[in-house]
Amino acid sequence: MSTHDRLLTVAKAAERLGTSERFPRRLIAERRIAFVKVGRHVRIAESVLDAYIEAQTVQPAVRRARSRYGRAA
């Protein structure tokens, strides 16, 4: 997290993820994502959210060319 990183509310983080507020709150409760407490308010840094999205991104599988003869038994 950089010092110039923008802090997002749980609602803004949920909007960015395209989920309800319950999902980022669960990530926070399960300590699966870093967060900042400002008094009683909870904030999530943009860079942390970006890193979470990157870590959860699944790359497409590489398809191999099919053999025209099939498999041997």
Rank of each mutant, 00 (worst) to 15 (best):
M1A: 15
M1P: 03
S2E: 13
T3M: 14
T3R: 10
H4E: 14
H4M: 13
H4N: 13
D5G: 05
D5Y: 02
R6D: 10
R6G: 10
L7T: 06
L7D: 09
L7V: 13
L8V: 11
T9K: 08
V10P: 01
V10E: 10
V10W: 08
A11R: 12
K12G: 04
K12T: 15
A13E: 01
A13V: 09
A13R: 01
A14I: 01
A14C: 09
A14K: 00
E15I: 01
R16N: 13
L17E: 05
G18S: 08
T19H: 04
T19Y: 02
T19F: 00
S20E: 03
S20L: 09
S20Y: 03
S20C: 14
S20N: 11
F23D: 06
P24N: 12
R26F: 09
L27A: 14
L27S: 03
L27Q: 03
L27F: 07
L27R: 00
L27T: 04
I28T: 05
R31E: 10
R32L: 14
I33M: 12
I33N: 04
F35N: 02
F35D: 00
K37D: 11
K37S: 12
K37A: 15
K37Y: 07
V38Y: 08
V38S: 09
R40S: 10
H41I: 01
H41S: 12
I44C: 00
A45K: 10
A45L: 06
E46W: 02
E46R: 03
E46D: 08
V48M: 04
L49Y: 03
D50K: 00
D50F: 03
A51Y: 05
A51I: 11
A51V: 12
A51W: 07
A51M: 13
Y52C: 11
I53T: 14
E54H: 14
E54S: 15
A55D: 09
A55G: 04
Q56G: 07
Q56N: 14
T57F: 02
Q59V: 07
A61L: 02
A61W: 00
V62T: 08
R63P: 01
R64N: 01
R64D: 02
A65I: 11
A65K: 07
R66D: 13
R66F: 10
R66K: 10
R66I: 11
R68Q: 10
R68N: 11
G70I: 04
G70W: 02
R71P: 01
A72Y: 01
